[in-house]
C-alpha cells in the first residue's frame, strides 16, 4: 500500500509537471531527508522527548485523577464537570498562553502535549474502573477483602484494558499537542523545522520533516500497542 502510494506520488508529479515548491517528487524528498539526516534526527529527538514527557504526565495525572473521581462522590460532582468543561475548550487556543506562562523552551510543548493527551486517559480509566464486574465486587466483599485489596487486585486489572485504549487515543494527540506547541513559538523541534522550511521555500525539507513526524508518531503508537499486549485478558 505504501509502495503504491509512493509510486503514485512520484508519477503524479512527473506526469502533471507539478512545480517542486508545491509538491516535490518523493525521490527529491528522500534525497533531502538523507542529506539533512543529522538535523532531522536532532529535531525529531527534541520533539519525541516533548511528546513522551507530555504523554507520561498525562498518564500519571489522568489515571490518578480518574481514581480520585471514581473513589469519591465529591470529586465526581466537582472535578469531573470541570474536566469535561475544560475539554470543550479548543486547546490549540491555549498554546500562546502556555508560551507566556512557562516560556519559549520545551516546557510549553510538554504542557501542550499533556493537555491534548490528558482527557482520553481520564475517560478511559474512568470507564475501566466503572466496568468492573459487580459479581466480582460482591465476591471480594464476601471474602472480606479490604478496600485497598479490592482496588489493587480487582479494580486495577479490570480497568487496565480501558486504560490502554485511553493511552492509544492519547498518544497521537500528544504528538499533535507538541507540534502545535512548537508552531506557536519555539527554537527547535520538528514543528519549528517545518515552519522554517516553509518560510525558506524548502518544500522538500518540509516534506522530509512531515515524514519524520509521522515516523515518530508511528513508533510511539507501536510502543503503546506493544505495552498493551501485556494486558492479554482484554479480549476475553
Amino acid at each position: 500500500m505504501f509502495a503504491l502510494l509512493a509510486v503514485a506520488w512520484e508519477k503524479w508529479v512527473d506526469i502533471f509537471h507539478i512545480k517542486p515548491y508545491l509538491l516535490p517528487p518523493l525521490s527529491k524528498v528522500l534525497a533531502t531527508a538523507w542529506a539533512s539526516r543529522a538535523v532531522l534526527f536532532r529535531e525529531s529527538w527534541i520533539t519525541t522527548l516533548e511528546i513522551v514527557q507530555g504523554f507520561g504526565w498525562a498518564m500519571v495525572a489522568g489515571v490518578a485523577l480518574a481514581m480520585a473521581i471514581h473513589a469519591s462522590a465529591v470529586a465526581q460532582r466537582t472535578v469531573y464537570p470541570l474536566i469535561v468543561a475544560f475539554q470543550g475548550l479548543p486547546k490549540i487556543a491555549l498554546a500562546p498562553l502556555m508560551v507566556v506562562w512557562v516560556g519559549y523552551g520545551t516546557a510549553s510543548k510538554v504542557l501542550m502535549a499533556f493537555l491534548f493527551a490528558f482527557f482520553p486517559v481520564v475517560i478511559g480509566t474512568l470507564g475501566g474502573l466503572a466496568s468492573t464486574s459487580p459479581a466480582l465486587i460482591e465476591h471480594f466483599r464476601a471474602i472480606r477483602a479490604s478496600r485497598s485489596t479490592t482496588f489493587r487486585r480487582l479494580h486495577v486489572p479490570s480497568a487496565l484494558p480501558a486504560v490502554i485504549d485511553g493511552a492509544k487515543t492519547a498518544m497521537p494527540l500528544a504528538v499533535i499537542g507538541a507540534i502545535v506547541g512548537e508552531f506557536v513559538g519555539s527554537e527547535a523541534g520538528l514543528g519549528h523545522l517545518i515552519l522554517e522550511a516553509n518560510a525558506n521555500g524548502r518544500t522538500d525539507l518540509l516534506f522530509a520533516a512531515l515524514l519524520m513526524v509521522s515516523a515518530v508518531a508511528g513508533v510511539l503508537y507501536l510502543v503503546v500497542e506493544l505495552a498493551g499486549r501485556r494486558v492479554w485478558w482484554r479480549a476475553l
Binding site: 464486574s133 466480582l136 460482591e138 465476591h139 464476601a142 472480606r144 480487582l154 486489572p157 485478558w233
Partner: peptide
C-alpha cells in the same frame, strides 16, 4: 457483617480472568 467462618459461592463464577 461478613465473617471469616462463612464462605459464599454465587451463581456466576468468581474467578479472575487474569
Amino acid at each position: 457483617d461478613v465473617s471469616d467462618d462463612v464462605g459464599v459461592v454465587f451463581q456466576t463464577h468468581n474467578m479472575l480472568p487474569w
